[in-house]
């Protein structure tokens, strides 16, 4: 397991009586797309937030490229190459798409105590931002204010911002949430291209997409990893079937 880029070791997090993360261990290898699935409330986003450092786990450790990053603040983890896209779109709505992504570039271009030169004129910031936007297919739309763009485009800006941060690992939190079928297909194509260049930890509800894209899948239920393996193995796993079947019954009963 020497090629593990991200290692999560026995991570636990409680909110009062609720166990959000329960002695969870997993790893993401170089060049791997590792998908994290599980019913609603399984603690997927909580896990991501602990990986990025916005939330502190009660116990356990997070290792990135062999280095223990458990006690680093969010911005330092980001600078090490951990980039996150948000489940709920979280952009700078009053700025253009290009400004949004350029800020993500700037975050990794040294300190920003530069008070004089116009940032919008710096090729060092603008060129990588334009490239990232072009890569997600928004090259034509980069001078539009984010507030005036569609939800699907916001999801793409999210990805572009993650790319612009020169990441080694992409943490994508439900990039397809709320997308229509056409936009979803576009996203799957994009993710397939991205996984060639980046290690990805993907949280996603769209099972079709997950099984099409993932090299390995971890199934989370009540904060606990009940299974990890290749897509075929997960599909055949009895515990997983039970967990998902149970969920469906519950849904039918309430619905």
């Amino acid at each position: 397991m020497t090629d593990a880029l991200l290692q999560v070791k026995n991570l636990s997090k409680r909110f009062g009586g609720i166990v959000a993360t329960d002695d969870l261990s997993l790893d993401v290898r170089q060049g791997e797309l590792h998908a994290l699935i599980g019913p609603n409330g399984a603690g997927k986003t909580t896990l991501i937030t602990q990986l990025t450092g916005q939330l502190t786990p009660d116990s356990g450790a997070v290792l990135f490229a062999g280095e223990d990053i458990s006690s680093l603040p969010a911005y330092q983890r980001s600078q090490l190459g951990l980039a996150r896209s948000f489940q709920i779109t979280s952009l700078f709505l009053d700025m253009t798409a290009l400004d949004n992504v350029a800020l993500a570039v700037q975050a990794h271009a040294g300190h920003s105590f530069r008070f004089w030169a116009p940032a919008r004129g710096e090729a060092e910031l603008r060129d990588p931002a334009r490239a990232a936007l072009a890569r997600v297919g928004l090259g034509e739309r980069m001078n539009v204010r984010a507030a005036a763009m569609s939800h699907g485009e916001h999801r793409l800006i999210e990805i572009a911002m993650a790319l612009a941060a020169k990441p080694r690992l992409l943490l994508l939190d439900e990039p397809m949430a709320g997308l229509g079928p056409e936009e979803s297909a576009r996203m799957v194509t994009l993710l397939r291209e991205l996984k060639r260049d980046y290690a990805v930890l993907l949280v996603e509800h769209d099972m079709e997409a997950v099984f099409a894209l993932a090299d390995r899948i971890t199934v989370l239920v009540y904060g606990r990893a009940i299974a990890t393996g290749a897509p075929d193995a997960i599909r055949a796993n009895e515990d997983v079937k039970r967990a998902y079947l149970g969920e469906q019954k519950a849904v039918t009963r309430h619905g």
Binding site: T52, Q54, P73, A74, Y75, Q76, S78, Q79, A83, R84, F86, S90, L91, F92, L93, D94, M95, D99, A102, L103, A104, Q106, A107, H108, S112, F113, R114, F115, W116, A117, P118, A119, R120, E122, L125, M161, A165
Partner: peptide
């Protein structure tokens, strides 16, 4: 005018717009 359009100014305005996001992308 120089300050708000500089890198520093972009950070300050980014923090006005969405501070959490600024921290998530790596700005103290």
């Amino acid at each position: 005018y120089r300050i708000v359009n500089s890198r520093f100014g972009m950070v300050v305005q980014g923090a006005r717009s969405n501070e959490k996001r600024m921290q998530a992308i790596g700005f103290p």
